[in-house]
Design a protein around this nucleic acid. Sequence first.
DNA 1: ACCCAGGAAATTC
DNA 2: GAATTTCATGGG
Length: 273
Amino acid sequence: MIRFSPADGLFSLRETLSCGQSFRWRRVSAPGAPEAWHGVAFGHALTAVQAEGAVEFDCTETEFREIWFDYFDLGADYAAARARIAAAVPQLRDVLAFAPGIRLLRQEPWEGFVTFLLSQCNNIPRIEGIVERLCAAFGEEISPGEYAFPGAERLASCELSDLAPLHAGYRAQYVLAAAQRAASGALDLEALRDLPLEAARAALMALPGVGRKVADCALLYGLHRTECFPVDVWMKRALTLLPGLDPARLGADAGLAQQYIFHAIRNGRLAGA
DNA sequence: ACCCAGGAAATTC
DNA sequence: GAATTTCATGGG
């Protein structure tokens, strides 16, 4: 058991894992009991428990150091980032106060890309179901009943009909096309980390079913390109309530600001929403 | 039955 | 170019 609290003191499992950036985590504690979450990332399963002022990770020290510390972005200074956002956009004061323990997960690039490919014109509970079936059907079984996210090579070996049980609808063909390009090397997600943003975005948008929003989500959540500010139907509403907000003015804090705003408006914490 | 969901792409005006 | 339609599926 590893007990950890980031230096900035800002880390909530619930706020981080239920704010819509990931689709593979489930709350496993009974109401009233200490809040516990369980999920899989980078081929490792984890149960973590929210304690007072810290989070307890049920894993080895090696796993914590090599996987979870980075996954939960625990080395970053969120207090400083929040101060910069508040200074740049004073009208976000209430939004920032709603879920101060959100951290931007550093998810696997391929998983981030595929899950947000599946997200289009869909709702979060259903996305979670599709992703769960995708992993159970094609992911490596890392322990009984638990599956890693399937690699591009595995998915590229599928026929479209193989994906029918996922009930992903028209999005299945997009996943298949992405898998084929990633497996062949025509698409190199890791290379997008170092490309200029516009070039990285264009490389993703060259694939079928990938527009500006999905590309920005893949870049933000899978590659930690935090200058991305994905705009979906919720954010369009939010932006009408936050006139004058210019994401470009937030620089590398744009992605985090977007996450605070998205979570707030979905929970009715934005005036008029 | 109707509308919407972390959209994108083709079509139409 | 800006609106409209279609795409597949499930829940409210």
